[in-house]
């Protein structure tokens, strides 16, 4: 065992103290690579989002006035349900192949690794929805600045949705029947984001100012970024404690 690293094998003093950035980048990069290698997880939430939105005109009727009225709620609830659909893959695979245990045992603080994981998950599942939402907005007869409001509100709101559902996923990762449970846990906590998300889009559709609603969504985002990773880390430690 002659490689340079190995003298450290016995004398770990050579090892650099753990830096948050290294842990964060390692987790973010690895999850993005894994996600791109497994296309299906990437694409499913997107198709689900598109199909659910396409169903509403079929169900409620094609009149522009009604569609325009329900458009904000439709797009936001579809985004919310797609987040729920894609959250199960967040920790489940890592739990099954044991890499979640390695993350828990890492000297890097767990909440940083979890943050990296959630941002990777958000980039992979929520960002495509946001990019596609203008097209769907047009389908629901939205005018230009309503679509702009939808984009901004989704951009600020979906990370909060991902973080809330990650709390549910962390608490149920060890259970066989976790799927529906995450929805029951996370849905009540989605309500404020849903209210201000649709509020912003509605205000824009009535050509009123929607800056206020976006500001509150931004506040939720900061609150979630500050507190959710700790709750998720605690949830993971509890789930893997058994």
């Amino acid at each position: 065992m002659g490689t340079e690293l190995n003298p450290a094998a016995v004398n770990p003093a050579v090892v650099k103290p753990p830096s948050m950035a290294q842990g964060f980048n390692a987790m973010l990069r690895r999850d993005l690579v894994v996600a791109f290698r497994q296309r299906s997880d990437l694409v499913n939430p997107l198709f689900f989002f598109i199909m659910v939105i396409a169903l509403f005109p079929l169900g409620i009727g094609p009149e522009p006035s009604t569609l325009q009225k329900i458009a904000p709620g439709v797009i936001w609830i579809a985004a919310l349900l797609s987040t729920l659909l894609s959250v199960d893959s967040l920790f489940r695979q890592d739990f099954d192949d044991g890499s979640l245990e390695l993350a828990l045992l890492s000297p890097q603080p767990l909440f940083v690794l979890v943050l990296g994981k959630i941002i990777a998950h958000w980039l992979v599942t929520a960002l495509p929805l946001i990019l596609v939402s203008p097209v769907l907005g047009v389908m629901l007869y939205m005018d230009a600045d309503t679509i702009q409001a939808t984009l901004c509100s989704l951009l600020l709101g979906t990370p909060v949705l991902s973080m809330i559902s990650a709390i549910g996923a962390a608490l149920t990762v060890g259970l066989r029947k976790g799927g529906v449970l995450v929805a029951i846990i996370a849905l009540p906590l989605y309500v404020p984001v849903l209210i201000f998300g649709t509020g912003a889009v509605e205000a824009a559709s009535m050509s009123m100012a929607f800056g206020g609603q976006l500001a509150i969504l931004g506040a939720f985002l900061i609150l979630a970024l500050a507190f959710a990773p700790f709750a998720i880390a605690a949830g993971l430690r509890i789930s893997l404690n058994g």
Binding site: I185, V191, A231, G242
Partner: peptide, 27 residues
């Protein structure tokens, strides 16, 4: 572990109660 998991969830819920109340009242 059930008690600890529900503890985390009820704390997260408790933090969200005022937020939910405020947003529902605004809505």
């Amino acid at each position: 572990s059930a008690a600890r998991a529900t503890a985390v969830l009820s704390i997260v819920g408790a933090v969200n109660i005022p937020i939910i109340k405020y947003s529902v009242e605004w809505w």
